[in-house]
Amino acid sequence: MRLYESVYIVAATIPEDDLPELTQKVEGIISQEEGLVVKHTPWGKNKLSYNIKTHGYRHDKGHYFHVEFLSSPPTVIELERNFKIDERFLRFITVKLEDSPDIEALKARAEEEKAKEPPAPAPAPEAEPEVEEPAPEVEAEVEEPAPEEEPTPEVEAPEVEAPVEEEPSQEEVSAQEPPAEEAEPAPEEEAEPGKEE
């Protein structure tokens, strides 16, 4: 069993009333053979960055959905096969998050997520990474950050490991030399020299 996540886009031409049918279809496929839907979030109707032409129609909007689920590799193949067959799905992407996840913890999390189903369409808790989380919000959504903490390996593992092996000196040097004030102006600079070239 592995932990995956999928993002898929349903054509905006599909009326919103029909969306539950599609999400249930996705969950149904995942749930076969002991799969477990950990979290299924609609991101709402968003504008596409580029138009997608399918069967003579040019889509410029789509309903985005994000699923986090636990399953075996064949299930993913089956899921993607269905995405390809069904014309209502415009795009999909599946990413493996973890090879050997803590199944019990995920089951607990899945139930927590189910319990607080109604307040859904928020695009991921880390939507604004640059802003520090204000205290009141954290209290209001106690349940949201909590489950995030459990599968720490998925988030932290790569970050913690990598700096040690891959960037011994370079990172340290650059971290010391430039004082904090220089960290922020960087983005402006990066854009300008780009134009020059």
């Binding site: 640059e130 971290a175 220089e182 960290a183 102006p185 990066e190």
Partner: peptide, 15 residues
């Protein structure tokens, strides 16, 4: 010439 810094290294909150 300002020394360039990796923004992801310097800002751990940047996901």
């Amino acid at each position: 010439r300002r020394r360039k810094v990796c923004r992801f290294c310097s800002d751990p909150k940047l996901v």
